[in-house]
């Protein structure tokens, strides 16, 4: 009999480089652990689902983004884009918050493939049945 999978639910509400990397690393690792991973992108987090989006450091750290990206590359840390496509390839479920889309003027065509547009209820239904829920 197949053991039912563990479920991880993650909410991402920001678009800075650090907060972009975290959910991608956690989602890929979660799937490697044979868990089902559901990530709900809301508010600024939604931008992380845009095609060709390059997250930057926030606030006064913003000018140091290039330096950080270079350092990550030197350390062989996969880029945001690589990790994001790994997530989709491995079967992480990505949800775009419909209300945030309207608010931020983001259209379905702006988003990468493999994203499901949904509301808060859908995500909460998943979260209620998840083994762990993280907020980033």
């Amino acid at each position: 009999m197949e053991k039912s999978k563990k479920k991880i639910a993650i909410v991402v509400s920001e678009n800075s480089l650090d907060k972009a990397m975290m959910p991608m690393i956690l989602a890929t690792s979660g799937i490697a652990l044979d868990a089902e991973v559901h990530v709900f992108f809301t508010f600024w987090g939604l931008e992380l689902l845009k095609k060709n989006y390059k997250p930057k450091l926030k606030g006064i750290m913003k000018p140091f983004t290039g330096m950080m990206v270079k350092k990550m590359k030197e350390q062989n840390i996969s880029s945001f884009e690589e990790l994001r496509s790994q997530c989709i390839e491995l079967g992480a479920k990505f949800y775009a918050c419909s209300t945030s889309m309207a608010m931020m003027g983001i259209k379905e065509d702006d988003l990468i493939d493999g994203v499901q547009i949904s509301g808060a209820t859908k995500f909460l239904k998943i979260a209620l049945n998840a083994d762990t829920t993280l907020f980033i």
């Binding site: 890929t28 690792s29 799937i31 490697a32 996969s78 990790l83 491995l90």
Partner: peptide, 13 residues
């Protein structure tokens, strides 16, 4: 070797 987390685990899986 040379790869950082989470890639070793992803590749292993």
């Amino acid at each position: 070797r040379g790869l950082a987390c989470p890639m070793p685990i992803i590749k292993t899986k």
